[in-house]
Amino acid sequence: MMFTPRVTQKIAFGVLLAASLVVLLPVGVVVFVILKNGLGAISWEFLTEMPRSGMREGGILPAIVGTFCLVTGALLFALPLGLFAAIYLSEYAGDNRLNRVIRLAIVNLAGVPSVVFGLFGLALFVNFFRFGASILSGSLTLGVMILPVIITSSREALESVPKSFREVSLSLGATRLQTIKHAVLPHALPGILTGTILGVGRAAGETAPILFTVAAFYLPKLPTSLFDQAMALPYHLYVLSTQVPNVEAKIRYGTALVLLAIVLLMNLTAIAIRSYFRSRKKW
């Protein structure tokens, strides 16, 4: 049976729309299921107390604090390094061989499986540098993992600043460094910020890189130094859902909700910043 081109087109577009909606399905399911089952677990006590009775009762404070410490550490490592690398790629390096090799390295770094970052962190930071399983080791491992995210997005942000800004600045007698600082960076800032937030969100949610570098199974106290082990939200959720029998579903869902809320809020912030600056882009 033959259809006219117009009918074929209708059918095809319908199928494509259906496929797109299927892709959205898991976001809806995840958010709905977690909100429905987890909202009841959220209370002031849940967020601010230590876990008790083998994590079957009490709160998740040390996991929240641990994740916060890890993310901050990862950011302190990856942001300056990533921003500098992006500045090099976009402002200093021409299209030379070094630039191309760096680009390939970044592509590959971005593709390394997260558990392999975990092995790397274990071998380099935990064992070779003797930092032990610690916040320092975990932060550095996560920092290495989000480095390509920060470099790539910062580079895109820098390269989207019109070439003419640089030419104008130099023509007015500014040095190269002054040009980057005053005529390029301020205009790339929203993009850099967006990329950084996305990187942070990714670091907050990752489990595999921290498995062997920092994560403590059950440690009902807050970390006091960089060399302490720590609990972390994603690992805590993993432990609760697969390693500890007879945990009330509410506690699992509550933990998942806190983790999801942190990560999605960061992403929504990034999306909001981007669309705000895109709408009032000035050139």
């Binding site: 003419s164 104008v168 040095t175 000035k282």
Partner: peptide
């Protein structure tokens, strides 16, 4: 070149004010 460009200014074809 930096000092030179302070002595020799340029006006481009398109008006290019910075934002």
């Amino acid at each position: 070149p930096v000092l030179l460009r302070r002595k020799v200014g340029i006006i481009f074809a398109l008006p290019l004010p910075l934002p």
